[in-house]
């Protein structure tokens, strides 16, 4: 029983991290229906920027954190400006292929600069983030993750529902040409959504880096594991990403614990195929209805 509870807790915490990592991905999908295969690399870039600022430049932690967020925001902006803007109005297949190329490019670049070794952050989280809840204690990182997750969930929900930018984003995702002809500034929408997604990805990268250490192979693997998570939750649902993450995380740790550790990394993808078969739009995704 103890073993089960431990697996449960592990699974939920791993899953919550998956959920947070998936939020940036959903952000991009929701605003441009692009499947971003470079998401894992965006996570990694955020983590590495923070690593450099915090350990090599010896900046104070909060300063390093704010600078990292700014850097990620601008990075998303630059990536959009350089690579995606020329493709506005082109078929989606080009954009998705482009993200496949970007993923390879970024990964190669990170490996060339920092190598494939595991780096760790200094221990910097303040003690007061440790929550004691009955007998159980929650590590400060997880408190941070929880706070970040809930905050972003609420912010995104409000953003997409009420702000005009959010509504523009949804219109662009639905039909880019129609949105263009109705006067939506698609360029701005793309730029903003990539910038925000890179920011969220950077933050999740830092959180993942605190827990597992920073390693580009692991982080880009998580970037791909986002796919089962969002398919399960529904591609365009940010809340669904969190729920999907929790379920995938649980399944992963339970399989790792009870069946076989080597199956652990494949289970999410088996789930993915099953979901596509049974409930293709996921738990909370919007079912596409087509009328001609």
């Amino acid at each position: 029983m103890d073993f089960f509870v431990q697996l449960l807790v592990n699974g939920l915490s791993v899953g919550f991290l998956y959920g947070i990592s998936a939020m940036g991905f959903v952000m991009i999908f929701k605003s441009s229906s692009v499947l971003n295969f470079a998401h894992g690399e965006l996570l990694a870039i955020g983590a590495y920027i923070f690593l450099v600022l915090a350990t090599e430049a010896h900046l104070p932690i909060y300063g390093a954190f704010i600078l990292t967020m700014l850097a990620c925001f601008s990075l998303g902006f630059i990536v959009e400006k350089l690579f995606l803007r020329p493709l506005i109005g082109e078929p989606l297949i080009f954009v998705i292929m482009l993200t496949v190329g970007l993923a390879a490019m970024f990964k190669g670049l990170i490996l060339l600069i920092w190598g494939g070794n595991l780096h760790t952050f200094p221990d910097f989280l303040p003690e007061w983030l440790t929550l004691t809840w009955g007998g159980a204690t929650v590590q400060p990182v997880y408190t941070l993750a929880l706070v970040a997750g809930v905050t972003f969930l609420a912010l995104f929900g409000l953003f997409f529902k009420f702000s005009s930018q959010g509504i523009y984003m949804r219109s662009v995702a639905d039909n880019q040409r129609a949105a263009l002809s109705l006067g939506v500034n698609v360029k701005n929408v793309f730029a903003l959504s990539w910038a925000i997604a890179a920011l969220v990805a950077g933050l999740s990268g830092i959180i993942l880096g605190i827990i597992n250490g920073v390693n580009v192979h692991d982080l880009s693997a998580i970037g791909l594991k986002v796919f089962p998570v969002v398919i399960l939750g529904g591609l365009d649902s940010i809340g669904g990403a969190i729920v999907g993450g929790l379920i995938i995380g649980l399944l992963e740790t339970l399989t790792g614990g009870y069946i076989s550790p080597s199956l652990r990394d494949v289970v999410p993808y088996i789930v993915l195929v099953v979901i596509l078969m049974l409930k293709p739009y996921g738990l909370f995704g919007q079912v596409e209805i087509e009328r001609v």
Partner: peptide, 20 residues
Amino acid sequence: LNMAPLREFVFGLAIVLFIL
């Protein structure tokens, strides 16, 4: 300097440049 990352980078760059 390692072959694998350089290769990955060059492939990615080639894909991106050709698409653009």
